[in-house]
């Protein structure tokens, strides 16, 4: 397979077929918490793309330089450290260099530290022993999948808001039901790419 078809299939596979939120159920808390408005959902999604891409690149290097064969069991804790520090660094730099973006992202940026999708991608690609290129494709694809899922969700939620929902379903319950239905819809992508 040529390079571009590998790239394309890799991104499609990570973004849609194995969507991080809707088929692997990682990163649910920002997915539910920050999907009230499309504008904030887009902000959160782009912030996640940036952080996932950076963090998987750095964790790949750390994994291959420091965590050799006999230190594999330290992956989780080291990756958490790296991701937390990375988010902090990005925040500090943004605050100085691009204050408008920093203000727009607001509280979402530090929230990404606790987004398990970020850690999930780093650990997953380390465990599957991907090459650096594969890791990058996988992480960008996953992050794009998160953006797609959260923006779709916010669009649906904006519409749900004005509907006449039964009292007991108001608020979070209807959102969870919606998320379940979306997951079923995304299940339809299974099998579109061999494997």
């Amino acid at each position: 397979m040529s390079f571009f078809s590998t790239l394309f299939l890799g991104i499609i596979s990570a973004a849609l077929v194995n969507n991080v939120v809707l088929s692997r159920f990682l990163g649910l808390c920002p997915f539910l918490g920050v999907s009230k408005k499309t504008s904030t959902a887009v902000g959160m999604g782009t912030a996640v793309i940036a952080v996932i891409t950076l963090s998987s690149a750095i964790t790949y290097v750390i994994d291959h330089v420091i965590l050799r064969e006999n230190l594999r069991y330290l992956r989780t804790i080291v990756f958490i450290l790296i991701i937390a520090a990375l988010v902090q660094t990005v925040e500090i730099i943004l605050k100085k260099k691009i204050p408008s973006l920093y203000k727009a992202l607001g509280v979402y940026l530090p929230l990404i530290t606790t987004n398990c999708a970020v850690l999930g991608v780093a650990i997953d690609s380390a465990q599957k022993s991907y090459t650096f290129a594969e890791t990058m494709i996988y992480s960008v694809g996953t992050a794009v999948g998160f953006l797609i899922a959260i923006v779709l969700m916010s669009g649906i939620r904006e519409r749900i808001e004005h509907n006449d929902i039964p009292e007991s379903f108001k608020g979070m319950p209807i959102v969870l039901v919606t998320a379940g239905l979306m997951a079923i819809a995304f299940f339809g992508f299974k099998g579109t790419i061999g494997g």
Partner: peptide, 10 residues
């Protein structure tokens, strides 16, 4: 070793 690695990284 684990403590040292984590400590140094931190």
């Amino acid at each position: 070793i684990a403590c040292a690695v984590i400590g140094v990284i931190s």
